[in-house]
Structure formats: structure tokens, C-alpha cells
């Protein structure tokens, strides 16, 4: 089902791309942490809305809205893995070899999942290390915040895998019509939907708002909610709604991926 040689080739070819993504993500994280040190005294005084008194809290606040890069990373991977090959005419070389379409499809999906896991693992290690090093005085009184960060890392991977599968399914079906522009549009699209839902907060019932919130997969890794939870401020209900919405999303993505696979098996690849 999975071809090791092809998987190895995918990693070799994607080495530069994955390194660039990692550097961008780490650079942003370091930048945000530096901003925290610049403004931490003002934040500690509180502004009547939110009180941020540790680097982990700060991380939670920025992660929710500023890490648009994650869904774009997942959507680019998902959309372009199969279509790019055919569009750039490498398909004739790859698919003329003794590899079935099913093998290529499954290997590419496996590569996408592994790429997400590897980049996120690196991110988790670097962020955790950095937070511990720079935030020891803040974290000592509340070690649970590190637990919250790990929860965020885990759920962030779930969010990316959902977006990846959604886009991989779509990419399989669209084949060479799946472009880089489309993948960026999907990533940004999720972000825009998230903002629109945020705006609705002022106008709709709180329970309905909670449900609407999780209609966008970006909120599967809602760092603010996670920090509220580890700080004992979140209600259990919110996580119940989360699960209620996440499960259909995951089912939808698996369905879309299966449909995409069927379309891919019947499409011209050269």
C-alpha cells in the first residue's frame, strides 16, 4: 500500500519546503515571545478584559489568531501533493512506473500526515523549551500551563490533519486543477469564516455561538479555550460541543478523501 522508495523521495524533495515552513513558524514564535517581554508589564496590570501574566498565557492569546500559517500549511500540503505532479507534467514519469495509483495516492497521503507531525513535533519541542527557559518564574506557580500547551499542540495537529484531509480529498478529485492559489484561498477562507463567527458573538445566543465557533476547524485548536480550561475557567459543556462538532468534521473529511480517491483513480494523469 505504501511505497517506501516513493515516501523517501517525497521527503528528499520536500526537505527545503519543510525547512522553510519550520523556520517561518519558529521565527514567528520567537518574534511573538520577544513582543511579550516588551509589553509584559502593561499586560500584568490588566486592561479590564484579560489578564495575561505568563508567557504561556501570552502564547495562548496569540496562537488563536496569529497562527494562520498552520491551516495554510495543511491546505497547501493537501491540495498540491497530487495535482502539482500532473500539472507540472511529472505524472508521466511517476505513473508509468510499477506503482499503482492506489499506492501513489496512499503514499502521498502518508507523506502529508508525517510532514504535519514532524513539523509540529519540532514546533512543540522548540516552543516548550523556549517557554520553560524564558518563563520559569511565571510557570513555577502554575505548572498546569505546560499541560495546556501540550493540549494545544495535540489539538493543533488534529486541526491540521482535518484541514489536510479535507484538502487532500479535494485535491485528489480536482487533480491538475488543484492549484497553490486554491490551497491558500482555502486556508485564508477558514480564517475569514472564523473572524465572521467571532463578529456574530455580539448578536447571537451564547450556546448558538459556541456551536457556530466549532463549525470552523480552526477552532479545533482554540488556545484561549484550552488555557481557560487548564486555569479552571472553562465549562465542560464547551468541550462537549467541541466533540460534537469535531466528530462530524472528521467524518466529513474522511468522506471527502474517499470520494477524492475514487475520482483520482478514474482520472487522466498525463
Amino acid at each position: 500500500m505504501i511505497n517506501k522508495q516513493l515516501l523517501k523521495k517525497e521527503f528528499k524533495q520536500a526537505k527545503t519546503m519543510l525547512t522553510i515552513w519550520s523556520i517561518v513558524i519558529f521565527s514567528l514564535s520567537i518574534l511573538f515571545m520577544l513582543i511579550f517581554f516588551a509589553v509584559r508589564n502593561n499586560l500584568k496590570q490588566g486592561n479590564g478584559i484579560v489578564l495575561i501574566d505568563s508567557s504561556a498565557d501570552w502564547f495562548a492569546a496569540i496562537a488563536k489568531n496569529l497562527y494562520l500559517i498552520w491551516p495554510i500549511f495543511a491546505s497547501i500540503l493537501g491540495i498540491t501533493l497530487l495535482g502539482k505532479e500532473v500539472r507540472e507534467q511529472y505524472g508521466e514519469y511517476l505513473y508509468s512506473m510499477p506503482l499503482s495509483r492506489q499506492t501513489v495516492w496512499a503514499t502521498k497521503m502518508c507523506f502529508g500526515v508525517l510532514a504535519i507531525l514532524i513539523v509540529n513535533l519540532l514546533f512543540a519541542v522548540v516552543m516548550t523549551g523556549m517557554t520553560i527557559v524564558v518563563g520559569v518564574p511565571d510557570l513555577l506557580p502554575n505548572g498546569s500551563q505546560i499541560g495546556g500547551m501540550f493540549m494545544y499542540f495535540g489539538l493543533n495537529i488534529v486541526m491540521q490533519l482535518v484541514i489536510f484531509l479535507f484538502c487532500f480529498g479535494l485535491g485528489s478529485a480536482l487533480n491538475k486543477r488543484a492549484s497553490l492559489g486554491l490551497s491558500i484561498a482555502i486556508g485564508i477562507g477558514f480564517f475569514v469564516v472564523n473572524i465572521i463567527i467571532g463578529v456574530l458573538k455580539a448578536f447571537v445566543d451564547p450556546t448558538l455561538y459556541d456551536i457556530l465557533t466549532y463549525l470552523c476547524p480552526l477552532n479545533f485548536a482554540d488556545s484561549m479555550l484550552i488555557m481557560s480550561f487548564v486555569n479552571g475557567k472553562a465549562t465542560v459543556n464547551e468541550f462537549a460541543i467541541y466533540t460534537l462538532i469535531a466528530v462530524p468534521w472528521i467524518l466529513l473529511c474522511f468522506g471527502l478523501t474517499w470520494w477524492g480517491r475514487r475520482k483520482f483513480m478514474l482520472s487522466d494523469l498525463a
Binding site: Q13, T16, E88, Q89, Y90, E92, Y93, S96, M97, P98, L99, S100, R101, T103, A270
Partner: peptide
């Protein structure tokens, strides 16, 4: 060959466009 991809194990193919992964 679309159903039994393994049969391509016995085929050597040279494409007319000769387009390969350019960064390799």
C-alpha cells in the same frame, strides 16, 4: 496496466516530453 500496475515492472518507458523532477 491501469488495473495491474505491477505489469509495468516489465516495461521500460521513455516519454516524448522527457519531463522529470526539475530539482533532482
Amino acid at each position: 496496466a491501469n488495473i495491474r500496475a505491477d505489469i509495468r515492472q516489465r516495461v521500460g518507458y521513455a516519454s516524448s516530453d522527457s519531463i522529470f523532477y526539475k530539482n533532482m
